[in-house]
């Protein structure tokens, strides 16, 4: 039994740049069911980030409605939105956005700091657990500058997971990484999606990455051009295993 988690109705987002109005999104309709793994694709400037920011309750649509888990986001206050981001959404950014000079563990703990229901000891424990799930438990006391790009992104994913969100939003989470590391991230995403039932919306440029998802939405000039179901998504784990060992050195 799948339940609709995201519901978007005739969504428009305009940016006012002086006298000019930029129409970043020009009327978008789609629903996402719980447990789906959706990739959003499109050329640069097509409105992917704008859409994801709205889905993540970081931004509000100019026109149209957005229901998250049945709640009309437009009706929420700034603080309620913050609370919603904290409890229901895990955000993964293209540029990792980890706090510098702060250990991996403390970076992962960050969302729990803003959750009153979590005690200090529970916070430690859950952060450690999240780091374990991205295989970085042994690096918990490393600061971002002591980690590789892929490791930093895994810390960022652990941070997105730590509050046990219902939905993970990722904006070009593999954009800065080589293909082997990207596959590693995708394998992690697939695992989160398949074994933990997290809904994932993943923005990417690369069709290669999109092939790991169960559905792909193609944006063009702020409109949905194509919305295709992928009946047989590739397994990132398998692709990773089949990758030649010397692959890294060839490119």
């Amino acid at each position: 039994m799948s339940k609709t988690i995201l519901e978007i109705k005739d969504l428009k987002r305009d940016f006012q740049m002086g006298v000019e109005t930029v129409h970043a999104l020009r009327g978008i309709n789609f629903n996402v069911e719980t447990g789906e793994f959706v990739t959003i694709m499109g050329s640069s400037g097509s409105g992917k980030t704008t859409l994801l920011n709205i889905l993540g309750c970081l931004d509000q649509p100019t026109i149209g409605n957005y229901f998250l888990d049945g709640v009309d986001v437009k009706k929420l206050t700034r603080d309620e939105l913050a609370q919603l981001r904290n409890r229901k959404i895990g955000f993964v950014f293209q540029s990792y956005n980890l706090l510098p000079r702060t250990s991996a563990l403390e970076n992962v703990e960050l969302p729990l700091l803003y959750n009153k229901d979590v005690s200090v000891s529970e916070r430690r424990e859950r952060a450690m657990h999240a780091l374990e799930s991205v295989q970085l438990a042994d690096r918990s006391d490393h600061t971002p500058s002591q980690l590789s790009g892929g490791q930093q992104q895994r810390v960022a994913i652990a941070r997105a997971l730590v509050n046990e969100p219902v939905m993970i939003l990722a904006d070009e989470a593999t954009g800065n990484l080589d293909s082997r590391t990207s596959y590693g991230i995708m394998a992690l995403m697939q695992e989160l999606n398949q074994t933990h039932g997290k809904t994932i919306v993943f923005v990417t440029h690369e069709p290669d990455i999109a092939s790991f998802s169960s559905r792909t939405i193609l944006l063009r000039d702020g409109m949905i051009q194509k919305d295709t179901k992928n009946e047989k998504p590739r397994s990132a784990k398998q692709v990773l295993a089949e990758l030649p060992v010397t692959d890294d050195y060839k490119i």
Binding site: G56, A82, R85, N97
Partner: peptide
């Protein structure tokens, strides 16, 4: 500023 943005994105309220 970026740190503030991040904290807000992961659920910090203005008050926090």
């Amino acid at each position: 500023t970026r740190e503030i943005g991040l904290r807000m994105a992961i659920g910090a309220r203005g008050t926090d």
